[in-house]
Design a binder for these strands. Structure first.
Lengths: 187, 187
DNA sequence: TCATTTTAGTTTCGTTTGAAACTGTTGCAA
DNA sequence: TTGCAACAGTTTCAAACGAAACTAAAATGA
């Protein structure tokens, strides 16, 4: 059943004559990996976020920061950005919200005053302690849809895909802007 | 190797002697499914979006609409929303952008004048014809990281997870505890 | 029939986002 | 030293978003 293949005959479709829809490559969104990933990730994130947003009044970025600092460690905003895969703007904003709500403490670094050292407050650690079981429970509820073997497969697949996706993302944009045949541009 | 399990108890090496951190559940973001899905989906979507945003000046929602109407069909905004998994507001806005850039045509329905019938213009169909091969190529580049068997597995796993996630999302929120103040004690 | 509810889609409003510009700090090198 | 590039974070600004309110057109039903 998984062998449902997509018509992959993209090669000869470049004709502008557009007459024969026969060999026009088609794309079914519901089978298209980027779409599927996006929808799934959204469903999962939103469901989870609702659980803790209501309860603790924190957003996804704040939750992520709490997650990486939850062990009580101290780190810089840049390091948080790396570990949470958020960009520095997002981290900066989340931190200022958290400063206001007393979830985080910022101290100026001694050696390098550009880097601020960030640590969770006890209040945030308490949230962490409450939220983690919720999060793990939800994760388990989702993965309950899979057998043990499948969960291992999933782990492997996601890692592989992420590695490849990172690689492709790092690839510089096609060097030639290829404006030739700009068939769609009107202004 | 893929069966690396998550250590469900914190790494006991908590330097603080404070209380009993021994059995405090920990969560490593990099192994947490919602996070992994979110990062992967983002990487993939963004990389792909860059390919066509630059080239055609369309956004992700617009691309999705083009994708579902690319066969030349006509459908209502509501149907588009369903098929693209976007909400009606998002669809409405994407459509008005597309009307401005002459990518779509809106006709009032005969039988039901609430429903507008939407069809792509030739210009949009041309974009579709160009974008689909790009999109499929990108998808293949990503899935090249997987064996044939693994691609089939991925298909299965994603479907299962989506089904479960939908089911959990539909579940009514736990009887709103909705504590207004101090859901978390400070000490 | 006329009032009410439901459905389709749009608008509004406050928030969130991302890219780019900006501030302040450090490292480096002439 | 000074001068400048690189770095860490923040701010700005316009676009994008989501929830809820809104308009308009069916459907329901009394």
């Amino acid at each position: 059943m998984p062998s449902a293949r997509r018509p992959r005959s993209a090669s000869s479709a470049s004709s502008k004559s557009a007459s024969g829809p026969a060999d026009r490559p088609a794309l079914h969104l519901t089978r298209f990996l980027p779409y599927r990933l996006s929808v799934l990730a959204n469903t999962v994130s939103h469901t989870l976020a609702k659980l803790y947003e209501k309860r603790f009044g924190i957003t996804i970025p704040e939750w992520r920061i709490i997650a990486v600092l939850g062990g009580g460690e101290t780190m810089s905003a840049g390091e948080i950005a790396q570990r949470t895969a958020m960009d520095k703007v997002q981290v900066s904003r989340a931190i200022s919200r958290m400063l206001e709500s007393a979830l985080i403490i910022r101290e100026s670094g001694d050696t390098d005053r550009r880097k601020a050292l960030l640590t969770l407050t006890p209040k945030a650690l308490a949230i962490y302690a409450e939220i983690v079981p919720m999060a793990l429970t939800y994760e388990e509820e989702v993965t309950d849809a899979l057998s043990i073997d499948e969960r291992a497969q999933l782990d492997t697949l996601l890692s592989r895909l992420q590695a490849r996706a990172d690689q492709l993302a790092a690839r510089p944009a096609p060097i030639a802007p290829k404006m030739e045949a700009a068939p769609v541009r009107e202004d």
